[in-house]
Design a protein around this nucleic acid. Sequence first.
DNA 1: ATTTTTGTTTGATCTAGATCAAGGCGCGAA
DNA 2: TTCGCGCCTTGATCTAGATCAAACAAAAAT
Lengths: 251, 251
Amino acid sequence: MNIDIPALNTKIGDKCADCPIHHRAVCAYCEKSELMMLETMKSYSNYAAGDTIIMAGDNMKFVGSVVTGVASLSQTMEDGRRQMVGLLLPSDFVGRPGREYASFDVVATTPVTLCKFERKPFEKMLESTPQLRERMLEMVLDELDAAREWMLLLGRKTAREKIASLLMIIGKRQNSLSPFDMNSGMKFELSLTREAMADYLGLTLETVSRQINALKKDGVIELEKKRHVIVKDFTRLLDETGDDADGGYVI
Amino acid sequence: MNIDIPALNTKIGDKCADCPIHHRAVCAYCEKSELMMLETMKSYSNYAAGDTIIMAGDNMKFVGSVVTGVASLSQTMEDGRRQMVGLLLPSDFVGRPGREYASFDVVATTPVTLCKFERKPFEKMLESTPQLRERMLEMVLDELDAAREWMLLLGRKTAREKIASLLMIIGKRQNSLSPFDMNSGMKFELSLTREAMADYLGLTLETVSRQINALKKDGVIELEKKRHVIVKDFTRLLDETGDDADGGYVI
DNA sequence: ATTTTTGTTTGATCTAGATCAAGGCGCGAA
DNA sequence: TTCGCGCCTTGATCTAGATCAAACAAAAAT
């Protein structure tokens, strides 16, 4: 078997024919689902907000990608301290080919639809499809870079910088914006609770609340309905992240 | 070209015939160096402590692996705040096939010998050698897991837990120990300055100094010559990390 | 052998963010 | 329409770790 899969080169923002989502990676194969179905046994699952999709230590039966909703990748210490180590938005890949057991919890933050493939058949496909493996490697390298950016945030940024960075990342991602447009404002839904944000940023929920309201008071953002953010002053928000003006934020 | 490279399955601790180091990944190809030399143009470089090996933004001319010494992967903010995002010990891979530019600084912490391959030929080899790509993917997945473990440390651990975790990681790695032996003590060289440790842990050097001396006073470790650590009570140190007794620390 | 330089310890003080403690504000259920 | 329950806000207080400031130790450099 050696099928040419042009969709492998799918970039963020391209649409996949089958799934109504922005695919950047693996689920791009859905386009070939008639072909792949046979051996990958694709299926969809829905999860309610708060559901644990995968627990650390679980035997990983499937890999897949997020179709709708937001899930989080997190770690919990025995005494309850929790750290989110990844945010899974639509098009993000879930699971690890070649890994028998999960290292982290995957929890649905909002209602989530997942597009699943059984792991074993997927791994077989991976073996026979060099482009897929290549794409996989590229994807994981991106994740690694993102994780390392996040380490800077966790280790060295102030609470305000952390919040600004989070807003930038989610806003940009949701608006599928390149690093250089939008000098005007942007508007997006922040589908995380204050607690989830705190777990992501290594803060307490009280500090998150205070900092968000401080940014509001300072006229950098506006809030409507608590979860809808309007960035009034984009350049200012970027400043507040503490990052170099040019770089990064392409997650 | 389709050479079988059994060394690809080299595990941590196995010796490579050519380089006098423990290879777990790519440099395992040195075993095949006669064959590969032609197109990969392997070479060695030495760096003094403090030398910048690669700067963020540099055009990456090579990939390679650390043969001797310790290097660090780090990020610096405009105002000088620095966060280490990875520690490169002997056998660790440096660089990113498929990436034109470096995302992070690589700095020699101690004198370092690097085994280098030009990136382009290496990438070509990667294309023609599926096992190599597979190995590469596995390696990057490990790094990603390690980065995420570190995110928990940075976001949620106390200063004391951070120090204990660092000592565990370096000690275990240097002694090539599996997670289950050594109920007695262990001894190792801690080749990082207090400042480097601080940059790694998201602390100040004063706090690092105080916490190390606190662990000494509490009888968990002993110090000889400032950079040589003797872990007196291994179980105790493990406790102090805050981690589950069983898990992880296989970097 | 003596001066620099570079790294480490230790103390005193300060502060960002944590912790503790009420209230408030939707919103779905009854 | 009111009750209850998840979120969110806001205030008061506390504290781990940062910051500031010396002095000390060990290794280079002269």
